[in-house]
Computed example of a mutant assay.
Amino acid sequence: MLKISRLSSTRDVKDFISLPTKIYKDHPLWVPPFRHEIKAIMKGKGSNLFSNGPHEFFLARENGSVVGRIAVGIEQAMNREKGVDHAYFTLFESIDSKIVADALLKTAESWAKNMGMKFIKGPVSPTNGDDFRGLLVDNFEDPPAILMPYNPPYYIDIFKEYKVYLKYLAFRYNLENVISEREIKGTEIAMRRYNFYVEEANFKHIKNLARDIHKITVESMPEWEEDIIKPTFDEIFQAARTLKLVADSRMVIIARSEGRPIGYFVAFPDFSPIVREIGGKLFPFGWYKFLTKRKTIERVRAAILFVVPEFRNRGVPSAMFVKAYKNVREMGYKIIEGSSVSWMNSTMIANALRAGGEEYKHYIVFGKNLIKRPLSLREIYGYAADRFSSKERVLV
């Protein structure tokens, strides 16, 4: 007997959090999230997604055994910003059973319909980051980078009735392939011609760094950017404090023109092999392994790059990347993963390929119409609808 029910007890919460351990027991590349962080997220701490509107958590049980989970909700702030009536689903997991998966998705769809929503999308991330955003649809052989999604290959078949809503790309750079002198000279020429320079972040003055990052982000984030709204200073400040703990200042590059911050690049060590080894448990002994094995890490994840509009075609992204590339190479790392890049960001994709990046992974956020009539592009993509006029990218 299959039963789908809302979480209603401490035991339910525990079962919800523990289920992935069962799902991924035969998937050695999976990186478990930190359990204490998932508990906090489910309580709404550190999750704008759950803080910004109604949501529910559901469990699937079959003959008393937990076999699936899903969270569904409405991010009202995002809907107002984008002018849409969207619901989302997140934290989806299911055993290899179409019956179980369909029951969970139908439950989420029914909840969304009852709330008056026209469209449901997912998986999205409760942290508004990349960690749960999208379904990995290819290359299950290479391990996931830190804070990037990973799922069993059979998940792809679960979403046959859904359409592609958004797509994200990951690029791989081999640090043994030295950046060409032509690329280096090109960035030097660009810096002189357009009067800017790049420098490593100053972690000693974290509040000033947060102000610079916030200013760049607010100026740089395009209105068409899908499912992202501009962060507050407090959100950036908290992120900067966390970044100080996990990154090295040599991996965080700031671009300036006459002192004005015009761009930033953020990378950090890929701790995923260590997190995998400690099973997502920092306490009581995980911290020791985490700290003592940092020097064994070989990969860096380049996660964020923003440039203010008037400097986007002036070599700023390349200059920041070259600076970071040199630094991480000198630090002994071997690989950089650049992730994730929106399929609509043609400039970033071109920059990645020009810098020698190999497009090697893809992630999809799926979507489904919840009403009987076809939805317009405006109802699906909001104010960014004009960016999705190409037939290859239209979700119908």
Rank of each mutant, 00 (worst) to 15 (best):
residue 343 W to S: 13
residue 306 F to S: 12
residue 296 T to S: 15
residue 299 R to Q: 10
residue 316 V to I: 04
residue 277 E to H: 12
residue 295 K to Q: 15
residue 284 P to L: 10
residue 305 L to K: 03
residue 378 R to L: 10
residue 289 K to R: 14
residue 357 G to F: 04
residue 298 E to M: 01
residue 283 F to I: 12
residue 361 K to Y: 11
residue 263 G to P: 11
residue 314 R to T: 14
residue 260 R to T: 15
residue 342 S to H: 07
residue 271 F to V: 09
residue 333 Y to A: 00
residue 376 S to F: 07
residue 356 G to N: 06
residue 269 P to E: 05
residue 327 N to H: 08
residue 316 V to N: 04
residue 290 F to T: 08
residue 277 E to G: 10
residue 360 Y to A: 05
residue 370 L to A: 09
residue 302 A to V: 10
residue 306 F to V: 03
residue 344 M to T: 08
residue 329 R to C: 00
residue 379 E to M: 05
residue 311 F to M: 13
residue 303 A to W: 09
residue 358 E to D: 14
residue 318 S to P: 04
residue 332 G to A: 02
residue 273 P to Q: 09
residue 336 I to P: 01
residue 387 R to I: 00
residue 354 R to S: 09
residue 276 R to D: 12
residue 300 V to D: 02
residue 371 I to L: 10
residue 365 V to P: 00
residue 312 R to G: 04
residue 381 Y to H: 05
residue 318 S to C: 03
residue 326 K to H: 15
residue 298 E to P: 00
residue 317 P to G: 06
residue 316 V to K: 02
residue 327 N to V: 03
residue 273 P to R: 05
residue 312 R to V: 03
residue 332 G to W: 00
residue 371 I to C: 12
residue 306 F to A: 14
residue 387 R to E: 14
residue 327 N to G: 03
residue 280 G to F: 09
residue 271 F to D: 07
residue 368 K to G: 12
residue 365 V to L: 03
residue 313 N to M: 07
residue 367 G to R: 01
residue 338 G to Q: 06
residue 371 I to G: 08
residue 374 P to W: 04
residue 276 R to K: 15
residue 293 K to T: 11
residue 301 R to N: 11
residue 260 R to V: 14
residue 361 K to M: 09
residue 292 T to K: 14
residue 362 H to S: 14
residue 277 E to N: 14
residue 347 T to R: 07
residue 356 G to H: 07
residue 261 P to I: 09
residue 377 L to Q: 08
residue 322 V to T: 10
residue 368 K to D: 11
residue 292 T to W: 09
residue 354 R to A: 08
residue 380 I to V: 13
residue 309 P to D: 06
residue 361 K to I: 01
residue 344 M to H: 12
residue 385 A to Y: 15
residue 261 P to N: 11
residue 265 F to P: 02
residue 311 F to P: 02
residue 364 I to V: 15
residue 345 N to Y: 06
residue 352 A to N: 12
residue 266 V to S: 10
residue 260 R to G: 09
residue 286 G to H: 10
residue 335 I to Q: 00
residue 341 V to D: 01
residue 337 E to V: 06
residue 341 V to I: 15
residue 363 Y to A: 03
residue 364 I to C: 08
residue 288 Y to L: 15
residue 359 E to P: 14
residue 339 S to E: 03
residue 368 K to C: 10
residue 298 E to A: 02
residue 314 R to N: 13
residue 311 F to N: 00
residue 374 P to M: 00
residue 294 R to N: 13
residue 318 S to L: 06
residue 316 V to Q: 04
residue 273 P to V: 00
residue 363 Y to E: 02
residue 333 Y to Q: 00
residue 283 F to T: 11
residue 374 P to N: 07
residue 276 R to I: 04
residue 344 M to E: 15
residue 285 F to Y: 13
residue 362 H to M: 06
residue 303 A to N: 13
residue 302 A to C: 11
residue 311 F to T: 02
residue 330 E to N: 08
residue 298 E to D: 15
residue 326 K to P: 07
residue 266 V to D: 07
residue 365 V to Q: 03
residue 306 F to H: 11
residue 347 T to S: 07
residue 344 M to G: 07
residue 353 L to D: 02
residue 352 A to V: 00
residue 338 G to W: 12
residue 362 H to W: 04
residue 352 A to K: 10
residue 385 A to M: 05
residue 377 L to K: 10
residue 290 F to R: 06
residue 330 E to D: 06
residue 347 T to G: 01
residue 374 P to C: 03
residue 346 S to F: 06
residue 304 I to R: 12
residue 381 Y to V: 02
residue 377 L to A: 09
residue 324 A to G: 05
residue 292 T to G: 14
